[in-house]
């Protein structure tokens, strides 16, 4: 039994199919990049993973649990925009990752001081300690996304969903965000799903790259059929799999 199991997933809006017959098994700790043309259902698939919507048919299970009916703490998410709370300072945004489960959404007294200390540690790790008291609107796009990722990770989700997280960033910032994400992943060993428009980014960061496309196409009625997973690449080792020699004996190893 794999960690995330997607079985016979269909999704249609008002009789118009978006996704058809999607089956996917993902192991714990895998990084799955999701690519495809615009309007081919990548984001719909992510919303289904997030349990923001319910599929028309089929189900998604995490670690064998019952399919979720609404988003919860086991799923973390970072959107392209609007992922942090504009009315909270950077530090409060991180604290919110813990405190929102409390009855009033706040910590008090000693618990509050401990949470603030933890938040400062997190901020130091993600390199935002110097802007802890600023409001997100004053931060650059890259810093906002770093904050959003840090906030999502504070809740310790089982899977992290990224919806074009670096889509609105300039190329330089995007590269440094790649390093940041790679580092964080090495530390936490999280299972990540990332929707992206950028193929290079998908292959660079992902262990797997899955491609959404419409296998059937009716030229007179382009919306007649939905999309499904058409390719499932192994993106490890720079996209060239089977390069690691597993034989122990009678093998000539490169020096």
């Amino acid at each position: 039994m794999s960690f995330v199991t997607v079985r016979d997933l269909f999704q249609s809006y008002g009789g118009r199919p978006i996704l058809e017959r999607i089956n996917l098994e993902v192991e714990e700790g895998e990084f799955v990049s999701i690519v495809g043309a615009s309007g081919c259902g990548k984001s719909t698939f992510l919303r289904l993973l997030l349990a923001e919507e319910q599929p028309s048919r089929g189900d998604i299970r995490i670690a064998g649990a019952e399919p979720a009916r609404e988003p919860g703490r086991e799923r973390g998410v970072v959107f392209q925009r609007y992922s942090v709370f504009p009315h909270m300072t950077v530090r409060e945004n991180i604290v919110a990752g813990d405190s929102f489960t409390r009855p009033l959404g706040r910590f008090f007294g000693a618990a509050r001081r401990a949470a603030l200390r933890r938040a400062d540690e997190t901020l130091a790790r993600i390199g935002l300690a110097h802007v802890a008291d600023a409001y997100p609107a004053t931060l650059s796009g890259g810093m906002q996304q770093r904050l959003a990722i840090g906030q999502a990770l504070t809740a310790r989700p089982r899977i992290l969903l990224l919806d074009e997280p670096f889509g609105a960033l300039d190329p330089g910032t995007r590269l440094s965000m790649h390093d940041f994400l790679t580092e964080l992943r090495a530390q936490t060993g999280m299972t990540v799903f990332m929707v992206t428009h950028d193929l290079e980014e998908g292959f660079k960061l992902g262990d797997r790259v899955i491609v959404f496309d419409k296998p059937r196409w009716d030229p007179t009625d382009p919306e007649a059929y939905g999309a499904t997973i058409t390719y499932d690449f192994d993106a490890r080792n720079g996209g060239i799999p089977f390069q690691t020699i597993k034989e122990e004996t009678h093998v000539l190893r490169p020096a």
Binding site: G72, R73, S83, V84, F100, A152
Partner: peptide
């Protein structure tokens, strides 16, 4: 209020009241 923010709060475990 952007839907993203509400969903984000849900993934952080917030109740409707929170």
């Amino acid at each position: 209020i952007p839907r993203e923010q509400i969903v984000k709060a849900e993934t952080l475990g917030a109740s409707t009241f929170t």
